[in-house]
Design a protein around this nucleic acid. Structure first.
Lengths: 345, 345
DNA sequence: AGCACCATCCAAAGCGCTTTGGACTTCTCA
DNA sequence: TGAGAAGTCCAAAGCGCTTTGGATGGTGCT
């Protein structure tokens, strides 16, 4: 059933039927009702592509998710982010177009999205240090929102980000307050913007207290469980092991915990850990008492905020640059305690 | 730059330019080269929607991912499945349309997808017992592939599934062979088809050896970490605790492990566990030696197979029903050992 | 009565592509 | 040499919608 058929069936023109359905004023209330009833009854839904062609809008948002070519890893936070964004799209009758793409030909995909006019806008995931995608999208004129930030100084684009620097600075402060001096940073890949900011916060907190950051206690990798395990195991085996870990993700923290308990140590007693918790839906940080002390910020909510921001930008293209900096909560769980040496003192 | 402009620029008709670009034979090799060169130079890409309108095909596949309304949980295997399917789509110049939708109005979304002609086909995720979506899609005539199965007996639709029943039967056999008699099943939600088949395999193996399944040792829930923790903790506290666990997912198993080590027990020594491992990219089951003994089947590969099957079906709609039953590997890791009682004997 | 003014509807153009049905040239072979 | 066959190109229709620019008839007012 298409517009033409529906119009014929009603004895009306396509114009009138179209206007009735789209709530234009120049059609009487009585025909509008008649048209809408017939549309419902005949299960009429306008062809999405035809609307797109006629209006120039697609009602579709693109998400390009890079797959690390080195490790073939999908970011685990991705599912929850998408869930948040997806809700917003559904509510606003938008669709979501997903491209999974090896991270070495991302550029081509973005250009295609723009020139083929498949989407009205895109979300940039996982921005890296000085990410070229920002300039690229500004160049082709496709509206976008970055989940995260890139580069230093004032930003010329729209973004939603967690205050990673402050979060990790506060987390480090907490561990220092508990008497820890040998604190390990188990960070994400440091070509990622968020990882850089986290390291900066970590280092700043240490230096503020006159503790020299030890390169042997700073690792950065793709945030898998195994990486956490390997990093922790290696550091714990060293001659001057850390007494505390600051860990960039729940998944990696699980690996750290595995290494810790393998040495018959106990988290919160022998070894402390503070993690960053994205509140993954299938991996909640405990129900009543948090398993891990954590800096916490919902990635699902970030997805919602990014989507809402992008839709606003599309509706109102001339508006100022927008941004939203989210502060992470610092919550105490069962994985932190006084440093062994401090207890002795 | 659109076709019309490109044609004008070349002094050719739109027809010829279109045919040259799409490798139709009725255009000379020399003009074809000229056209393609100009297209590349001017960065011309055909408008996706216009092609869709003209051809009736969208070159787009829909994925509807349900979000449990009860717990707002996104299935963690989803990201890797999508990654596998996405690769296949990219290679074949297809796009992927994602709808995240509360599981109570899935039907409307599928109907919309069909009647608005947004996609050429869909993948059904997470089929439940007697899933109504199969009949729905057959009714509206939208090509589809089910990741999993639904109902019993011969199937009238296309699917890709793991042999869940056999996998869990073999896993149970392994635990029985090791002398375990009190075996707990920590299963997924039992309105899901896969969970039903797993329970059947588990029960069949027990009964084959004359062990009566104990309802107190069978739980089923959404597969989160916390569920695994809670279930294991509760069972271990009971007066007649299990000596082994059979666990439906890696995530849940991590929760079980947490409960086990909280009681100062050790996996593989005091308590055995066999899990089902979907080979999530960020949660590998160890690198050299598997952490958990596991029935293993790559969900990413399943995504590839589903996508490939669907594209074939779309190309060749008249073909027979297709299906693919994958056997899970059973690999021994460090989480299984002889039952304590057997050791005593 | 005559006029302007709404309210309500419609025909047709246009979005950017594919595809049908020729038209015109050049080759090929009896 | 002439007719049919290729080879090469084009004009125009059509996909299903929105939107522009009227047309028509009824209403209110002087």
């Amino acid at each position: 059933m298409n517009l033409k058929e529906l119009a014929a069936l009603l004895g009306l023109s396509q114009t009138t039927v179209s206007r009735a359905l789209n709530d234009y004023p120049e059609v009487s209330e009585i025909t509008r009702r008649r048209v809408k009833a017939a549309a419902r009854k005949n299960n009429y839904r306008p062809n999405a592509r035809a609307i797109g062609l006629a209006t120039g809008r697609t009602l579709c948002i693109g998400h390009v998710i890079p797959i690390s070519t080195r490790h073939e890893i999908v970011n685990p936070i991705f599912a929850d982010f998408i869930a948040g964004a997806g809700e917003v799209y559904s509510r606003n009758d938008y669709d979501m177009l997903l491209s999974v793409v090896a991270d070495d030909d991302e550029e081509r995909v973005y250009r295609d999205l723009a020139s083929r006019q498949s989407v009205d806008g895109v979300i940039i995931h996982g921005p890296r240090e000085n990410d070229p995608r920002v300039a690229l999208l500004q160049d082709v004129g496709l509206p976008f929102v970055v989940h995260g930030r890139t580069g230093t100084g004032p930003t010329s684009y729209n973004w939603v980000d967690v205050n990673n620097r402050r979060a990790f600075e506060r987390a480090t402060d907490l561990l220092l307050d508990l008497g820890h001096r040998r604190i390990a940073l188990v960070n994400g890949l440091e070509n990622m913007d968020f990882a850089i900011r986290r390291r900066e916060g970590f280092v700043a907190a240490l230096e503020k207290r006159g503790v020299a950051p030890d390169p042997a206690l700073m690792q950065s990798e793709e945030m898998t469980e195994f990486y956490g395990y390997r990093a922790a195991r290696q550091m714990l085996e060293a001659h001057n092991p850390p007494t505390a870990f600051l860990i960039s993700s729940m998944i990696t923290a699980i690996g750290v915990r595995r290494a810790v308990s393998e040495r018959d140590l106990k988290l919160g007693r022998d070894i402390s850990a503070v993690i960053h918790d994205d509140e993954l839906s299938y991996l909640r940080n405990g129900e009543d008492v948090p398993i891990f002390s954590a800096t916490r910020s919902s990635v699902r909510q970030a997805g919602q905020l990014c989507a809402e921001m992008l839709l606003e930008i599309i509706r109102n293209p001339e508006a100022e640059v927008r941004y939203r900096l989210l502060e992470a909560e610092l919550t105490l769980g069962m994985s932190t305690g006084p440093a062994p040496s401090a207890a002795r003192a």
